[in-house]
Structures are given as structure tokens and as C-alpha cells.
């Protein structure tokens, strides 16, 4: 079965032009998402994963700006659209569940009305009645009682509010939903239910999901493919099984070996030395080299390129350790 690409990000650069300097939050990112798959975008705070999500929504605000690259959604480079055209696509083709969105619901408006308002704004419905029937379908999808549409946010639990937020993201039938830490504020039993629901909806509606998270065990449970991001760049991408079985990039290896689990042998774990770099002045060469246990001379001077591990494979990694051109030549 050939896979259909719904989103292609090429050489994307999103910078923040602050008084303290240029923050290179996304600095040359390539990303591909196929129809119906769940792609995890994993990284630690400040690695640029949320900025990448906002860039795909074209919601970067000054002092931030997309400086370079392409974001091709269903064949259209959205960076070439004007604001009006983008407004038509946003939420219809790509939508986002923002981090902490469940705490940003309007506290003085019934949750059902908040969804209907959004539908009206996008001219998706012609009457409030029509809106109600859509809310009814959406609530069914996210397992909420229809009566809940008349509740105010404070009357709902965290899990229910998150369901409302997810319903909003799905309201206009998008092809892709970007979910930014959708379960971090929730308890683990609620998280399990919400993730199962997101996955069921994905299969039912055939949508693609980009899950932005730092929670690797969660990724192991739900993702098809994984992108690991470090200091504004993708350092490795692989299908979820290969990634957890045999991570290639030293950063991925470090991350995966630093997570405690409730299964498997109990042993002493070690964290990674150092801290992620300041993105105003990232290190020369490979951005991970100051923390890397396998650092070589070339790593300090020349930036590695993200490329396939072996020809014809989908595993890509950006590390000199695996670069034939370097080891053969040098």
C-alpha cells in the first residue's frame, strides 16, 4: 500500500527576533506525515517542538517569523498563501489542540456555545440549530454526554474539558490535528482514556495526528513513527519499534536510557550530562556535541546532515557516526 503524504515540511526555519538576539527555535526542519498515521514529535522543553507546531498552523507571532522553508499541506505550500486564504485552511485542513487549552476555555460561556461560535465564525453552519447537531456528533465522538454542552467549564473535570477541546479541534473535519502535550496535565488513568479516544477517532476519521510530547512511554504506546528533536533540529526519525529497540543518535539513546519504567529489570540509570544549548548561540558543528559521549573532531566543526541510515530505508539520523562519506573520506 502506498502512503499518501498529507504534510511535508522542508527546510523550515522559524526564528524569534528578540532584543537579546535571534532565537533559532526551528532551524532547518524536515518532516513528513502520511494520511492516517500518528507521528510523535519528541523533545525536551525549549527544543522548538511547539514552535514547529505553531509554524504549521501559521500562528507564529512577532517577534517570531518563519524565515525560510516550505510547508506543503495537501499539495499547497501554505507559506505562499495570504492571511485570508490561510484562515480558510486553518482548522479545516489542519487544527491544533494547544497545550493547556482546557484551561483557556471561556469561563462565562457554555462549552457547546463555544464550539458553535467557532463554527459560525468559519461559516461552517448557517444556523445555531445546525451547530447543535454538529456538537451532538462531536460529543458522541469524544464520549461526552450531549447535555454537557450546556455546562460551563468549571462544572467539568479536567478530562471532560480536554474532551471539549478535542471536539473543537475536530469540528471542521481537519486532515491533520497537531496535539501539543494533550494529556500532560491529566492523571494517568484519564490520560489512558483520552489517548485511546484520540486513537479511535484517528482510525474512524482517517485523520493524521502529530503528537508533540516529552513523554516517551506514551509515545511507545500510541505512535506509528517518531521524530526526535534537539535544539531546533530533527536528529532522528524512525518507526516506533526501531526507535525504541535501537535508537541511533546518541541523544535518542541518552533519552531512552534515562526513563524509568514499571516493567523490566530494575537498574541504576544515568541522566545526560550538561544542559540543552541556548538557541541564540547554538554550538558550532553538531548541536549535541558538547553533551555527546562519542564526540569526534568533525562534530565540533561541521554540522551533520539528516539522511537515511542505509539507502532505501526510512530511518533517518543526523550524526557523523553513521555518515559513510565522512568515515570513508576521513
Amino acid at each position: 500500500m502506498s502512503k499518501e503524504t498529507v504534510l511535508l515540511v522542508e527546510d523550515l526555519h522559524t526564528y524569534y527576533f528578540t532584543l537579546g538576539g535571534v532565537v533559532r527555535a526551528v532551524d532547518g526542519v524536515d518532516l513528513e506525515v502520511y494520511r492516517g498515521e500518528l507521528v510523535a514529535l519528541v523533545g525536551e522543553s525549549g527544543c522548538g517542538k511547539t514552535t514547529l507546531g505553531y509554524s504549521i498552523m501559521r500562528l507564529i507571532m512577532p517577534p517570531g517569523r518563519i524565515v525560510k522553508g516550505k510547508i506543503i499541506l495537501d499539495g499547497i505550500n501554505i507559506l505562499e498563501l495570504d492571511d485570508e486564504e490561510m484562515r480558510d485552511i486553518r482548522w479545516r485542513k489542519v487544527s491544533m489542540i494547544f497545550q493547556g487549552a482546557m484551561n483557556s476555555l471561556n469561563p462565562v460561556m457554555k462549552v457547546g456555545d463555544q464550539i458553535i461560535e467557532a463554527l459560525l465564525y468559519h461559516n461552517a453552519i448557517s444556523s445555531v440549530e445546525e451547530g447543535r447537531s454538529i456538537v451532538k456528533k462531536l460529543f458522541e465522538l469524544v464520549n461526552l454526554d450531549f447535555e454537557r454542552m450546556n455546562s460551563y467549564p468549571h462544572e467539568l473535570s479536567g478530562g471532560m474539558k480536554q474532551r471539549v477541546v478535542i471536539a473543537m479541534a475536530l469540528a471542521l473535519n481537519p486532515d491533520i490535528v497537531i496535539a501539543d502535550e494533550p494529556t500532560t496535565a491529566l492523571d494517568v488513568t484519564t490520560q489512558a482514556k483520552i489517548m485511546k479516544m484520540i486513537n479511535d477517532i484517528r482510525r474512524k476519521m482517517g485523520i493524521s495526528i502529530i503528537l508533540i510530547t516529552h513523554d516517551l512511554p506514551l509515545v511507545a504506546e500510541v505512535a506509528d513513527r517518531v521524530y526526535i528533536m534537539y535544539a531546533g533540529k530533527i536528529v532522528e526519525a524512525a518507526d516506533v519499534y526501531s526507535m525504541f529497540k535501537e535508537p541511533k543518535h546518541p541523544y535518542s539513546q541518552g533519552l531512552l536510557s534515562a526513563i524509568p519504567s514499571i516493567k523490566g529489570p530494575k537498574r541504576r540509570l544515568e541522566g545526560m550530562p550538561g544542559e540543552p544549548p541556548d538557541l541564540r548561540k547554538p554550538p558550532q558543528g553538531c548541536r549535541f556535541h558538547p553533551r555527546c559521549a562519542y564526540v569526534m573532531d568533525i562534530c565540533r566543526t561541521k554540522e551533520p546532515v539528516l539522511k537515511p541510515l542505509a539507502s532505501g530505508t526510512k530511518r533517518i539520523v543526523s550524526c557523523w557516526l553513521y555518515d559513510d562519506s565522512y568515515s570513508k573520506g576521513g
Partner: peptide, 20 residues
């Protein structure tokens, strides 16, 4: 509670049952 905790092993994670 324990059944809901994600396990960092994709193969195991997809086999396990969650008690709701």
C-alpha cells in the same frame, strides 16, 4: 492505575490490557 501507565516498549505496550 498500574494498567494505565505507559510502558516504554512498543511491543509490550500494544499487548497490554487497560483496566478501566
Amino acid at each position: 492505575l498500574i494498567s494505565a501507565i505507559p510502558i516504554p516498549d512498543p511491543e509490550y505496550a500494544r499487548r497490554k490490557e487497560i483496566i478501566e
